[in-house]
């Protein structure tokens, strides 16, 4: 590929953090390039995690709530209105060892870099964790799902299981109760991590039965899930649970593999930034949103840190002139 022009800023990721950074840098006339990611059925997709949810009730400015995908489409339209360029691709390799920074997209990571940039804002967010059981990948779409809003519809009048005990697990269970006749919520310990308001709502829903101290240990079925094996974590006994669908909501891990060996990370894999800032260990590289936040993990905090990253990048670029 011919020598590419050096962009002022490349933003990797298009969740609330990346698109807020795009709005701010575009309004500052930095003509940002957003690599928004590629379609997928996990949260790792254009628009990010909120593409997998329905009602977002705690994002300020929407008194009646707003649909996650609609909110993200609006973020994107707002960024594009100010001239942000959005490409539906994934960054496959980065080289942050010298400036300008190099970014590759697509499978060929040996040749010339696809893009060069003076500064980079990393907002690659987080993606759903899976249980790591046998045949898990091949059963996705065959009874196993990480997206209740996508797949709940197909489990009308069926009995299903939701794995997890946090807010997103309870939200999925509640959403699924519109379709399924019965939902077993499999919780590893004897308590929920979810917020009190979500717990209260789930407990009040008579289609949801919480199974405490219970782990899913095996999927049973040839071409699709016919039942599962569960373990009682108190006495280690194994039993069958007759469900035709399983929804996994056991949490997220930051999408940071691209930056291994280049950006400093905490032990849990989240990117390290300077206290109260989005600056990373490499000058000119900023990190915002869930990829560097193992504590708040909300759309509004991700958007807030995207704004911080944009302002820091803008000031840093000015200092370089």
């Amino acid at each position: 590929m011919a020598e590419s022009p050096v962009r002022d800023v490349i933003i990797i990721g298009s969740g609330p953090a990346g698109l807020t950074a795009a709005i701010y840098t575009a309004r500052a006339s930095l003509e940002p390039l957003v690599l928004e990611g590629e379609p997928s059925s996990t949260s790792d997709q254009p628009g990010g995690q909120l593409m997998l949810t329905t009602d977002v009730e705690n994002y300020p400015g929407f008194p009646e709530g707003v649909m996650g995908p609609e909110l993200m489409m609006n973020f994107k339209a707002q960024a594009e209105r100010f001239g942000a360029e959005v490409q539906t691709v994934k960054a496959s390799k980065v080289d942050l060892s010298e400036r300008p920074f190099k970014v590759w997209v697509g499978r060929d990571t040996d040749g010339e870099p696809t893009y060069l940039a003076k500064s980079i804002i990393v907002s690659t967010g987080a993606q759903s964790l899976m249980l790591g059981l046998d045949r898990e990948v091949e059963l996705i779409g065959h009874g196993l799902s990480t997206c209740a809003t996508c797949d709940g519809f197909f489990f009308r009048d069926q009995e299903i299981a939701v794995v997890g005990g946090g807010d997103s697990a309870l939200e999925e269970a509640m959403f699924l109760s519109r379709f399924a006749s019965k939902i077993y919520l499999l919780v590893r310990r004897d308590e929920l991590r979810a917020s009190q308001i979500m717990q209260d709502r789930a407990m009040a829903n008579d289609k949801i039965e919480i199974m405490w101290n219970t782990s899913l240990v095996e999927y049973v079925g040839d071409t699709k899930i016919e039942k599962v094996k569960i373990k009682n974590n108190l006495d280690e006994s194994i039993s069958d649970l007759d469900v035709t669908g399983v929804f996994i909501a056991i949490g997220h891990k930051p999408s940071t593999s691209l930056f291994e060996g280049q950006l400093d990370m905490k032990e849990n894999g989240y990117l390290k930034t300077q206290p109260g800032r989005t600056a990373t260990n490499i000058e000119g590289v900023f990190a915002s949103g869930d990829v560097q936040d193992d504590y708040y993990r909300q759309a509004i905090t991700a958007a807030g840190s995207g704004c911080q990253a944009a302002l820091e990048a803008e000031r840093w670029l000015e200092e370089q002139e």
Partner: peptide, 8 residues
Amino acid sequence: WCGPCKGL
């Protein structure tokens, strides 16, 4: 009502 469908 399917978010990932939009990207595809």
